[in-house]
């Protein structure tokens, strides 16, 4: 259950950014999470309210955008999608591939409410 520590790290970062911008509230958080990041989106969603309670991001909408696993073949050069337990080249079948996406654990986008930007 390291999703709880991930959420704690997330809230700390979000609050720091919100403070930098003198925001009073965070309304929207977008994460990009890859299947090979080791984080489970569903568990992150469950852990989030526990950690966010009492923070500037308490009422923020948490959106998690899954990313696709893609590999680049070091044999034939093709870029193809792959499965988490099977990172083979989709074109020639070689295992000598490099992951080009699918392990992201990113805070991608935030929407904040600041006194001077409130409607």
């Amino acid at each position: 259950m390291h999703e709880l520590s991930l959420c704690q790290a997330l809230i700390e970062q979000v609050e720091a950014i919100a403070r930098e911008h003198r925001a009073t509230r965070v309304t929207h958080i977008l994460l990009r999470i890859g299947p090979l990041s080791g984080a489970e989106p569903e568990l992150l969603r469950h852990a989030y309210p526990l950690v966010a309670a009492g923070s500037l991001a308490e009422s923020a909408e948490l959106v998690i955008e899954p990313t696709e696993i893609r590999v680049r073949c070091q044999r034939c050069g093709a870029e193809t999608p792959a499965a988490p337990d099977r990172l083979l080249c989709g074109a020639c079948g070689a295992w000598e591939t490099q992951l080009i996406s699918g392990a992201e654990l990113l805070l991608a986008h935030l929407e904040l409410e600041a006194p001077d930007s409130a409607p």
Binding site: A9, Q13, A23, L106, L107, H109, L110, L112, D116
Partner: peptide
């Protein structure tokens, strides 16, 4: 790396969740 490309109400950041660790 932090990319801040929007006005104060919308922030585009690209930061690893484990940046602190």
């Amino acid at each position: 790396q932090t990319i801040q490309a929007a006005p104060a109400s919308k922030e585009v950041v690209m930061r690893g969740l484990l940046a602190e660790n």
